[in-house]
């Protein structure tokens, strides 16, 4: 490896700083701040989660509307996937 070097700690730190600047500087130089979509929401009245929960506790579904639901998703069952893979 490198033989005796006479670098003092301060020159080392200087070089270290330069190295940091060069690694990150390149990225930062090209950094462009992301522009948000310019649509100003026209006077939306937002509802907080707490307020929504108050609405929810008062929700009432009429009995007439009851129907059979479609089948639940299957994709969360690991064991089944394993079986299909073993074939």
């Amino acid at each position: 490896m490198a033989k005796e070097n006479n670098n003092s700690r301060s020159t080392f730190l200087k070089k270290l700083t330069m190295a940091f600047v060069s690694v990150f500087g390149l990225g930062l130089a090209t950094f462009s701040f992301q522009k948000l979509q310019g649509f100003i929401k026209p006077g939306f009245k937002s509802l907080s989660k707490t307020e929504a929960n108050t609405h929810i506790s008062k929700l009432h579904f009429s009995e007439v509307m009851k129907i059979k639901p479609e089948s639940p998703p299957k994709f969360q069952q690991t064991s089944e996937r394993l079986q299909t893979n073993e074939i």
Partner: peptide, 18 residues
Amino acid sequence: NKSIVLPLILLSIPAAIA
């Protein structure tokens, strides 16, 4: 050539942290 190796080794320190 020390002037090639040393700067690269020094650069590798922040690169490793990075």
